[in-house]
Write a protein that binds this DNA or RNA. Structure first.
Length: 110
DNA sequence: CGATTGACGTACG
DNA sequence: TCGTACGCCAATC
């Protein structure tokens, strides 16, 4: 399979610390282009094809909205996981998103 | 093999 | 400030 973009996405997502969240655009920008955010979402769509578990619930859109909840299975599961990790989520919307935001381009110190 | 879609985001009007 | 168009790459139809 793709050992460059997709694998990079999965690796970054798995590196997200507990209680932290990031956005598709942040990962895309860290990997290549800011406009490659669709590829990140596509990677998440195929995340089940990966051998490792991908904490996709820690990856949200630019608005901090749990857009992927519909693909996660149980809608509440995604919110509950984030809440359990210390991330405040209200109505599928992350509260203090900026406070919980985890930027790979900064945390990974590219 | 060619066209369209897809967990988004940025740029331009 | 709000709305529409485009870009990225892979997978599916």
């Amino acid at each position: 399979m793709q050992e460059n973009f997709f694998n990079q996405v999965y690796e970054v997502v798995k590196l997200i610390p507990k209680g932290k969240v990031t956005s598709y655009g942040a990962i895309a920008k860290y990997l290549s282009s800011s406009r490659a955010s669709r590829m990140v979402g596509w990677a998440m769509n195929n995340c089940h094809s990966r051998s490792e578990y991908i904490p996709a619930h820690r990856v949200v859109n630019r608005n901090g909205l749990l857009i992927g909840k519909a693909f996660f299975g149980k809608e509440n599961e995604m919110s509950l996981l984030l809440n359990d990790e210390g991330v405040e989520v209200k109505d599928d919307q992350i509260i203090n998103f900026k406070n919980h935001f985890w930027d790979p381009s900064i945390e990974l110190t590219l």
